[in-house]
């Protein structure tokens, strides 16, 4: 068998928020736990077991994914951005700013995942309709806001470009 077979630990090289990390991980470790437990990046949250809530959404090679449904091993070689990497040089990302301006959060638990999903969405659709925004958020659940101010937050960010 090839050298890639039969390992109790998997060596991975993953870039997170611009920093390269090498680690040996258990095959079963979920990416969200690599971020939270191994790297201490606790801004990425876990809210369900069924890939439903999106609180764990991050960018993996530029695309929004649910980090609870990816093995760390699968992310070998990938570049990841988490909520902690969204603001640059102390400047909030426009989506972060939108959430603040429009009261797009209450408890804040779903918010990092919302921001990651919304920012990836705006990359592909910079001028969305309200309906497109609502459908883009189908994988992200919020129990506090009733979504209206989240929609407004994303509209704010879209306007800001």
């Amino acid at each position: 068998m090839s050298a890639t077979v039969a390992q109790n630990v998997v060596p991975v090289d993953i870039t997170v928020n611009g920093v390269e990390h090498h680690a040996e991980v258990e095959p079963r470790q979920l990416l969200v736990h690599f971020l939270r437990e191994t790297l201490g990046l606790t801004g990425t949250h876990v809210g369900c077991d069924t890939s439903s809530c999106g609180a764990c959404t991050i960018h993996l090679d530029g695309k929004a994914v649910k980090s609870c449904t990816v093995l760390t091993a699968q992310a070998d070689g990938a570049s990841i951005t988490t909520i902690e990497g969204m603001a640059t040089d102390g400047q909030l990302h426009p989506v972060q700013e939108g959430f603040w301006e429009e009261h797009g959060l209450q408890c804040g638990y779903c918010t990092p995942g919302m921001i990651m999903a919304a920012s990836a969405f705006l990359e592909t659709n910079p001028d969305p309709t309200e309906d497109e925004i609502r459908h883009a958020l189908e994988g992200n659940l919020c129990r506090c806001t009733g979504y209206q101010n989240i929609v407004k937050a994303i509209q704010y960010a879209a306007k800001k470009g």
Partner: peptide
């Protein structure tokens, strides 16, 4: 929320994958 332990294999070709399966 936490999978059971397993062996992880990442073949580099379909034939290799078939062999493992």
């Amino acid at each position: 929320m936490y999978p059971q332990q397993f062996e992880y294999v990442r073949p580099s070709s379909v034939d290799e994958a078939i062999g493992i399966l």
